[in-house]
Simulated scan of single mutants.
Amino acid sequence: MASANPHKAVEIAAVLAEAMPAVEIVPRPPELGDVAEDGETLADNALIKARFVCAAAGEPSIADDTGLEVDALGGAPGVYSARYAGPEADSAANLAKLMAALVDVPPSQRTARFRTVVALVYEGAAPQLGAHEHPSVERPHVLAEGVVEGAIAMAPRGDGGFGYDPVFVPREAAPLTFAEMSAEAKNRISHRGRALRALLAKL
């Protein structure tokens, strides 16, 4: 698993374990350094991470990149969701910037969606950990996408999930935010769950 985000890792492992119980999901080796997610699209970033870890760990690697697209903000923060408030910003800062940007936007105009692209990169991996190559090196891969439509709440609600979950109200579960749902309920309709199930269908 290429993600260094422990919350994402838990969600990815849960969905894959349910669908493919015979497959072992291995956490990202802690000795790997960070890789710059400087792609222009979600697919670019997912592939950068998966290629990097596949090459370094010598195993097939799965990674995702997720963006929150808010219509009133022209689709922002989008691919910059994880660093919306700056390269060193945490989730709280990103959330605060989002809510400030929408402070005068009424509920009817707060439509948004979460979009996730998942990448699986495999074969041709380096023989030992640490044999890094440039993450743009082409390898066999599979991409899949998942989208969930919804809206941005007027204020954060709930203490579950992570990132923008306290303010995102998925259409299928309204008026609950993702942060007010159980992990199992969220995974059934979430962007990441849908992307992973689409990936499994391709495999």
Rank of each mutant, 00 (worst) to 15 (best):
S136N: 05
V105E: 06
A43N: 10
E40Y: 01
V169R: 07
E31C: 13
L73Y: 05
E184S: 14
G124H: 05
A183L: 15
E133F: 10
H132E: 08
A185F: 01
A85Y: 02
A82H: 08
A2K: 12
A57R: 05
H7R: 15
V26F: 02
L16G: 10
H191R: 11
E40P: 06
L32N: 04
I189Y: 00
I48M: 03
Q109G: 05
M1C: 09
K49A: 06
T111A: 15
G86M: 03
F114D: 02
L199K: 13
A96Q: 09
V147D: 01
A9R: 07
V118L: 03
V118Q: 05
A173K: 15
M181V: 02
P175C: 03
L47V: 14
G78W: 09
Y80W: 09
A22I: 05
D90L: 03
A173P: 07
D104A: 15
E88N: 10
P140W: 01
P170E: 03
V23R: 09
G150I: 10
N45Q: 07
V169H: 03
T177C: 01
P106I: 09
E149L: 14
E11N: 10
V70W: 13
V26C: 08
E149M: 13
A183G: 09
V142H: 01
R188Q: 12
A85M: 02
P27Q: 05
A96L: 00
T111P: 00
I12L: 12
H191I: 09
A57Q: 04
L32M: 07
L68V: 11
E123T: 14
P6N: 01
G163D: 00
E138V: 15
F178P: 01
H191N: 14
E180M: 10
G67I: 06
M99Y: 06
P21G: 09
P140K: 14
G161N: 01
A2T: 11
G67K: 12
A119V: 08
S3Q: 03
A195W: 00
L196G: 12
P87N: 06
D90N: 15
A112I: 14
R171V: 13
F52K: 08
S91V: 08
A155F: 01
P170L: 07
L95C: 10
A36Q: 14
V148G: 06
A151C: 11
E180D: 08
A100N: 13
R171E: 11
T66Q: 04
I189N: 03
M1K: 09
A201E: 14
K186Y: 02
I189V: 13
A183S: 13
A13W: 04
F52C: 12
